Simulated scan of single mutants.
Amino acid sequence: MTIKRETLAAASSRFALGECSLGAILIAASAQGVCAILIGDDPDRLARDLQDRFPRAALIGGDAGFERIVATVVGFVEAPAFGLDLPLDIRGTAFQQRVWQALREIPAGQTASYAEIARRIDAPKAARAVAGACAANALAVAIPCHRAVRNDGQLSGYRWGVERKRALLDREAGR
């Protein structure tokens, strides 16, 4: 896994839009790895989100080689038990990086509260900031923010919708 903290500057990024069982999906990759997996209802909105995230990048449509990456990511969304064996280009602040690493350590099918995640990264009063890091995540499913729940175990906000969060958790639990 490649970790980058700076923004994608004048480099190019390949991307493709597609469909999966959760709706529209956009996958983008830099030279370092997959840098965005966005899920939603509106493909145009996903493309705008990508442009907003990487305003100085030259966005290039995918080619045949990139289509294999797209198929791998879509396959992971559909069957997360198989894992995602692709390099990731994870970009965020030092705090976000810590949160995202803690999320990746939660086993598939399990959850942790925002407060518990804050304690795991030695920031016990930062539960709201943990939620903010989840909201800033550009790598849906690969960084499993869907595993973060309220203190009472109930599902709450998820950037790509609570129903998608529920579907992802059900898939991971084998339901």
Rank of each mutant, 00 (worst) to 15 (best):
V77M: 06
L46P: 00
E105G: 06
F95T: 02
D89T: 04
D122S: 15
E19T: 11
D63C: 06
K125W: 10
R91Q: 08
L38G: 00
I25D: 03
L17Q: 06
A115E: 11
S13C: 14
L38S: 01
L8C: 00
G33H: 01
A129K: 14
L103H: 05
A16C: 11
L38V: 01
E19F: 03
K125V: 06
A123Y: 11
D85R: 13
L26T: 01
T93R: 12
A10F: 01
A11W: 04
P124L: 13
V74E: 07
S12E: 13
R91Y: 09
G83H: 08
A115K: 11
Q51R: 14
Y114F: 13
P87G: 03
D52I: 06
A118F: 01
E78N: 10
A64L: 11
A135I: 08
R14K: 12
Q97W: 03
G83K: 05
S21K: 10
R56Q: 13
A135R: 15
R91P: 00
R98D: 14
R91V: 07
S21E: 13
I90M: 10
Q51H: 09
D89F: 00
L86R: 09
A138W: 08
R14A: 01
R104V: 10
L38Y: 10
V99F: 05
Q110L: 13
R53G: 03
Q97K: 10
G75T: 09
V73G: 00
R45H: 13
A31G: 08
V74Y: 06
T72Q: 12
E105T: 10
R53P: 00
A115I: 02
I90Y: 01
D41M: 10
A79N: 14
T72A: 12
R45G: 02
G18I: 08
A115F: 03
V73Q: 03
L17M: 11
R45A: 12
G75R: 09
P107C: 05
I90A: 01
A118K: 03
D122G: 10
A115V: 03
L59R: 11
Y114I: 04
P43N: 07
C35V: 05
Q96V: 02
I121H: 08
D122P: 01
A133V: 05
R91H: 11
F76W: 10
L59E: 08
P43R: 04
A36N: 06
A133K: 09
A11S: 12
R128A: 13
P55G: 10
S21R: 13
S12N: 07
V70G: 00
E19Y: 05
G75S: 09
L38Q: 05
S13M: 14
E67I: 02
T72W: 04
V77K: 03
D122W: 02
A24T: 09
A127T: 09
S30F: 02
D52N: 15
S13Q: 07
A57M: 02
I90Q: 06
A112E: 09
G18Y: 08
V70Q: 05
A31E: 15
A118Q: 04
R14W: 05
A16V: 11
A9H: 07
C35N: 15
D52T: 08
A36R: 14
E19R: 11
A131V: 05
A47K: 12
L50F: 04
S30C: 03
A126H: 14
I69P: 00
R68E: 14
F66E: 04
R119V: 11
A47C: 09
T111W: 00
I25L: 10
A9P: 00
A31L: 15
F15N: 01
S21V: 01
